[in-house]
């Protein structure tokens, strides 16, 4: 029996190894977050958490609920590629409470003259093109080709 017995230094080493492995297992048991490794070396739940925030821009479909007439008109005119929220700003607050007023941006933001702007977009120099007058006096924003 005696010659079969492990030397004490080996026993100590085995105990130490088991203790370290045990501590590692314990730390892993407690600290590995749920869903870690489901999709890769990260928490799969982080994907869900990233979706939690509510959108600020409501999207064209939300505008279509009430303003489908305007959207149909715009869809036939030059500004058909422009979505409502491009000019009028984020719309979720307005969708939740129609009392909230929507704004509108200045036409020159897109139509001001700039050398880096391609020729396909109509551009004017606001200092030379009927300076001091409002754009809407001559142009209808929703149907730019029509005369008011």
């Amino acid at each position: 029996m005696n010659e079969r017995k492990l030397p004490p230094q080996l026993i100590r080493l085995v105990i130490l190894t088991v203790a370290i492995l045990g501590l590692y297992g314990l730390a892993r048991f407690f600290l590995t977050p749920p869903s870690f490794g489901e999709l890769g070396f990260y928490r799969a739940l982080a994907l869900e958490e990233a979706t939690l925030r509510s959108p600020v821009f409501a999207g064209q479909k939300a505008c279509d609920e009430c303003h489908s007439d305007t959207i149909k008109k715009v869809a036939k005119a030059e500004h058909k590629t422009v979505s409502c929220e491009s000019c009028h700003g984020p719309g979720r607050a307005h969708v939740e409470n129609p009392e909230v007023k929507m704004g509108a941006i200045f036409c020159v933001r897109c139509h001001g003259v700039d050398p880096a702007r391609s020729a396909w977009i109509k551009q004017v120099d606001p200092k030379k093109h009927y300076a001091g007058q409002r754009c809407a006096e001559c142009h209808v924003p929703h149907q730019p080709s029509e005369v008011p």
Partner: peptide
């Protein structure tokens, strides 16, 4: 994930 486009794509007028 809600079926909307990213905000930058939504507002791009061009």
């Amino acid at each position: 994930t809600r079926g909307l486009r990213p905000a930058c794509v939504e507002v791009c007028p061009a």
